[in-house]
C-alpha cells in the first residue's frame, strides 16, 4: 500500500478503533498493521518510537502515532496519523455521551458500569506498577515519588507544578552527582 495521506489516516483510524483499555496495546497493533501487513516500518523502529513516545508528555498512543506518521510522510503523515488515531475515540465518546442519560436508566447497563468501575481501579494500579518499575530506581526517585503523592493527594497542589518542580530537581540532582563522580575520577 502506498504511503499517502489518506492511507496513513485510514491505517491509524483502524488502529484507533482496535485500541481498548489503555494505550499500551498500541505497539503490537502497529507492529501487525504497519510491519506485517504494509511493510511501512520495522519492528525495531516501532519499538524505538514506543520508547520515545513515553519520554514525551501526553498520551503515549498519540505520541507514538505522530512519530510514526512523521517518519512515513513528514508533516502530512504526522497530521494524518494524529487525526486518524483520535477520530474513533472522539466519535465513540460523543455518541455515548449523547445517549448516556438514556443508557443509565437500564439496570443492566448500570451493572456493567458498577463492575467495570472496579476493573478500572485494577487497570490504574497496573499502570502505577508499570511506571514504578521504570521510574523508581533509587532513593532520590523514591523521594520524588513520595513527595508528588503527598503534594497531589493530600495538599491538592497543581500536578503541572509538581511535574515542573520534579524535572528541575532531576536536573539539579543529576548535575551534582555527575560532578561528584567526575571529581572522584580525577
Amino acid at each position: 500500500m502506498e504511503k499517502t495521506f489518506w492511507n496513513i489516516y485510514k491505517t491509524f483510524f483502524k488502529v484507533g478503533t482496535l485500541l481498548l483499555g489503555g494505550g499500551y496495546v498500541i505497539l503490537p497493533l502497529l507492529q501487525s498493521e504497519l510491519n506485517e501487513k504494509r511493510g511501512w516500518a520495522t519492528d525495531d523502529e516501532l519499538c524505538e518510537f514506543y520508547a520515545l513516545g513515553q519520554s514525551v508528555p501526553g498520551i503515549i498512543a498519540a505520541n507514538m502515532s505522530i512519530f510514526v506518521g512523521y517518519k512515513l510522510l513528514g508533516q502530512k503523515g504526522a497530521f494524518a496519523a494524529a487525526t486518524g488515531i483520535v477520530t474513533p475515540a472522539f466519535l465513540a465518546i460523543v455518541l455515548i455521551a449523547e445517549i448516556l442519560e438514556e443508557l443509565i436508566k437500564f439496570h443492566f447497563i448500570n451493572s456493567i458500569f458498577w463492575g467495570v468501575g472496579i476493573g478500572v481501579v485494577i487497570l490504574v494500579l497496573l499502570a502505577v506498577k508499570e511506571m514504578w518499575n521504570k521510574s523508581v530506581v533509587d532513593k532520590f526517585s523514591f523521594a520524588i515519588f513520595l513527595g508528588a503523592f503527598i503534594l497531589s493527594g493530600i495538599l491538592k497542589v497543581s500536578p503541572a507544578l509538581i511535574i515542573i518542580a520534579s524535572a528541575i530537581a532531576g536536573i539539579i540532582y543529576k548535575l551534582k552527582t555527575d560532578k561528584a563522580e567526575g571529581g572522584k575520577e580525577c
Partner: peptide
C-alpha cells in the same frame, strides 16, 4: 526526575 513524580500523581 519527572517520571517518578508522574507515578506518585497516579
Amino acid at each position: 526526575g519527572l517520571k517518578p513524580a508522574g507515578c506518585g500523581l497516579l
